[in-house]
Simulated scan of single mutants.
Amino acid sequence: MKDVTEQIDQWLSQDIDAWTRRVVRRHFDPDTGTPYWLKRAAELAIDPRDITRHDELSAFGPMPLGELRTLDPAELVPQAVPRPLTGRVWDSGGTTGNPCRVYYTGPMLEHRAAWRRWVIEREGFEPGRNWLQATPTGPHLIGHGAVDLADLYDGRVYGIDFDPRWVKRLLRDGRLKEAQEYSAHVTEQIAAVLEHQPVDYLVTTPALLQALIKSRPELVARLKGVRLSGTHATPAMRRSFHNALGGGLVVVTYANTFGNTVGLPVEHDGALMPYLPNYPQVTMAVVDKDDWSKVVAYGEQGQVRLTVLHDDLFLPNVLERDLAVRYDTGAEWPCDGVANVKPLQVVRSAPEGIY
């Protein structure tokens, strides 16, 4: 089992302005930079290589996510990364239609896995246990977590078949009965594994755990812990999960294809659920819904603005479809956090579904 503590400590010690300068200059190097950003450079009011501080990234404006739905993901990878690129392209959830696509280099996957390895130990999950990864797989990065659990945490990992886009399509079309039938199909797969196999921990979505508690509460009660992401969870839901597990671990995380977070200890008897971005490669701000450039005060609610600052992927000012509270992480952590995340808007054209 690999110890990643030294690596995480090194990342957390980074100065965000120095990190920003290095990453931006890598992506805008005229000879080895990123094709997409070198083309965009001519449209900007400043020379990106003159940027010296993280807060100056606002000069790029909001990231046009629509372009990521049709762009060849290789265009977002610096030419410094040897061609041809080999590896996986990952999709976003596709809630609003054609998904965004990004290519993850080896170092990007290692960064994501190291944070995951570090945090699940802090959360109290034991190594060498059996897990059921009841999440989407295929083009969805969340499914790669099964590999992380096996390789970095000595886990044995079960899985299921799960296509979240189908249930979202059914909901968009108003086919509620069929959507419910598909959700039942997924929860039945989870129940079959839990009933017949020695599973300690379950990774799934809050929506699916709710359905499983309703249909097979005795199977949930046998679990030692659950790790949840993919749909939002309220403090009341988290408390109900605790009751269903009878004292087992309940961890709710917040992540997407572009960037992940670490769940911090809940506060105020579970009423506040904070998260720390995977700094310095990922930073988050909570901004005014009507002015993406204005960061709200601590304790205030706004839209999540995410920035990816990886050597191999630069995505500034991604406006997420999420509302959150700006969270002060204090002296212990080097950046702001977000708390009590929920959808910015849930409508038939963009349903949350079961992932």
Rank of each mutant, 00 (worst) to 15 (best):
25 R>V: 02
258 F>L: 10
97 G>D: 02
106 G>V: 12
4 V>D: 10
34 T>R: 03
22 R>I: 00
71 L>F: 03
130 N>C: 15
281 Q>C: 07
55 D>G: 04
153 Y>F: 15
86 T>S: 13
354 I>D: 12
169 R>Q: 15
163 D>Y: 06
9 D>I: 00
47 D>T: 09
8 I>F: 02
329 T>C: 13
115 W>L: 01
121 E>W: 02
296 V>Q: 11
194 L>M: 09
46 I>C: 14
354 I>P: 05
282 V>H: 01
330 G>N: 04
348 R>A: 14
29 D>F: 10
48 P>Y: 07
191 A>C: 08
182 Y>I: 03
84 P>C: 01
107 P>E: 00
300 E>I: 01
84 P>K: 06
240 S>P: 09
51 I>V: 13
76 L>Q: 07
155 G>R: 11
66 G>P: 04
145 G>C: 05
69 R>S: 08
126 E>K: 14
286 V>Q: 06
99 P>W: 05
197 Q>N: 11
346 V>P: 02
251 V>E: 08
207 A>Y: 06
157 V>C: 07
16 I>H: 01
105 T>R: 12
207 A>I: 00
220 V>W: 03
179 A>S: 11
224 K>P: 01
139 P>R: 02
158 Y>N: 11
270 G>Q: 08
6 E>G: 11
188 E>Q: 15
73 P>Q: 11
125 F>M: 15
306 L>V: 03
91 D>G: 05
323 L>V: 03
205 T>V: 07
91 D>Q: 10
214 K>P: 01
266 V>G: 03
202 L>G: 06
62 P>D: 02
320 E>R: 07
79 Q>A: 07
37 W>D: 05
11 W>T: 00
89 V>K: 06
167 V>T: 13
354 I>G: 04
294 K>W: 06
142 I>G: 04
302 G>T: 09
266 V>E: 10
228 L>F: 10
133 Q>P: 00
74 A>V: 06
90 W>Y: 15
129 R>I: 00
44 L>T: 12
168 K>A: 03
234 T>F: 07
324 A>F: 06
172 R>S: 12
116 R>H: 06
63 M>N: 07
14 Q>P: 06
70 T>R: 14
1 M>T: 14
234 T>K: 02
87 G>Y: 04
219 L>I: 13
156 R>T: 15
47 D>N: 15
65 L>F: 13
279 Y>F: 14
27 H>R: 11
78 P>V: 05
19 W>R: 02
134 A>P: 08
210 Q>P: 01
261 T>V: 00
206 P>Q: 06
221 A>R: 15
224 K>H: 14
169 R>L: 10
223 L>R: 05
163 D>Q: 12
293 S>Y: 08
346 V>M: 04
172 R>V: 07
170 L>H: 10
327 Y>S: 05
258 F>M: 11
217 P>G: 08
327 Y>W: 15
345 Q>G: 07
98 N>R: 15
92 S>I: 00
93 G>C: 05
170 L>Y: 04
193 V>L: 10
25 R>C: 12
339 A>S: 11
